[in-house]
Nucleic acid binder design. Sequence first.
DNA 1: GTGCAGATCCCCT
DNA 2: GGGGATCTGCACG
Length: 183
Amino acid sequence: MSIPRKFYKRDTEIVARELLGKRLVRKIGRGVMSGVIIETEAYKHRDDPASHAFKSMTRRNRVMFGEVGMAYVYFTYGMHYCFNVVARSAGVEAGAVLIRAVRPEKGINMMQKNRGMKNIDNLADGPAKLTQAMRIAESHYGADLTDSHGIYIADGPKPRKISASARIGIRQATDRLWNFKSV
DNA sequence: GTGCAGATCCCCT
DNA sequence: GGGGATCTGCACG
């Protein structure tokens, strides 16, 4: 069962923390892949120079301004996709949570095939690795993650402990500890 | 283990 | 025209 939309209608930072331990589920035909989310990052709006939504709405970032619980998928570095969930509290214009890593559970064989690797430790421990492992791409831009269809987020094991640190790979706003990992 | 180069292209101003 | 919410392989020692 997918998590209801109201879960995502809260402060982006809170949702980023609470997505830790949830399951990302991907169905392709009869196949199912899933993994437990173990690392996330919050990206906000005008108060966050590192966010794609920092400036005005554009073709790329427009879904960050739309309904919460939708997928924001973007293409970067000429070859990688990254996967986010739109989340923000009422009255805030834009926000999303980047899913940076999952611990594979189901469909590990499929992920290995999609990644062209056998090492389980490297399968989905990075934002572009998990999209490659689960075959997430531009066709998922704007997908409703509260729908239990091809891609969605479901409940999972609560993390014991959460650590917060600076977000990875950004130049701006490095003082904000909006990267969250379950420990 | 760390560090760097190269791949590769869409998006914006 | 420039830069990017990245990954991999190779070099090092």
